[in-house]
Design a protein around this nucleic acid. Structure first.
Ligand code: MN
Ligand code: MN
Ligand code: ZN
Ligand code: ZN
Lengths: 142, 142
DNA sequence: CAACAGTTTAGAATTATTATAATGTAGATT
DNA sequence: AATCTACATTATAATAATTCTAAACTGTTG
């Protein structure tokens, strides 16, 4: 159990009241070594498992969207049926394993810098992200 | 009004019965010079406008998914609230205009070939696609 | 310790999508 | 051309995901 004061501070900084529920969600999401990807469903499970106090579904949605808007979470959409949130909010690329439905972060060295030749007048580029879909290589089956 | 025989043939080729509804949807989707992007909602509107014969909503969904499975359509998901289908089924990159919610195709020359250094053991790469999010450049507002 | 604005909550409402089951139809068989 | 059959379409119901509502609650300010 680490200090939640950090979360209380972080929440205050972006103008979110550090309520019990929000702090709890911060703990579940950010009190860990590595960032990770999850669906709303995953999160609801995590919360109900790792918790004494339950959080209503509406609050989970509200809070996730509040975090998203404030830049604490980032949405990664694979297709209309599979949408993930990412506690790694930096602009970064992903592998998506179509066998396991698992999202995997790339780091800087995994994909060379993307060079974009086209520019759209009056528009600036907000982000450039690559999705690499992979699946089991069954060429070695005779 | 061009020849629908093409569509009837195309449908047969992938094992889809060329029913009235499917042929009609082919017309609406493919009887044009350029490929385009649409939501289910867009498509339902297009069908009900450009048509004498109505198609039930369930059939629109079924047919879109049948086309998707057979490689006549491709899904492009921007976020959980915005999912598009693309009549351009090749692997290609997109710009997404966050002001207008418009998807724009890239062609080969717009983005340099993506170089991927990481490889995941036992997995092959199925596709590599880039999404470039753009928005109005308001730096020139004092 | 008020007072208030913002938050949570359960449950209802809405929306998007899929399932159901009756009816229709394309294409094959006589 | 009539019949057959598997597949497709349809209206509608059912489901699932998300958002809304309005009452109760809580963090913050003074
Ligand atoms: Mn969202
Ligand atoms: Mn789909
Ligand atoms: Zn990620
Ligand atoms: Zn496209």
């Amino acid at each position: 159990m680490k200090k939640n004061c950090n979360f209380i501070e972080k929440l205050r900084e972006v103008g979110l009241r550090p309520t019990k529920q929000r702090v709890k969600m911060c703990e579940v999401l950010y009190n860990r070594v590595k960032t990770f990807h999850f669906t709303i469903n995953d999160l609801v499970k995590m919360l109900s498992e790792e918790m004494n106090q339950k959080i209503s579904l509406a609050t989970v949605y509200n809070t996730v969207h509040a975090f998203e808007k404030k830049g604490y979470l980032k949405e990664i959409s694979i297709d209309s049926h599979r949408s993930y949130f990412d506690t790694n909010t930096s602009v970064h690329h992903h592998f998506f394993d179509e066998d396991t439905n698992e999202l995997i972060d790339c780091d800087e060295s995994d994909i060379d810098k993307i060079n974009i030749r086209k520019n759209i007048i009056g528009k600036k580029i907000n982000s450039v992200e690559v999705l690499v879909r992979v699946a089991s290589d069954n060429q070695n089956q005779k």
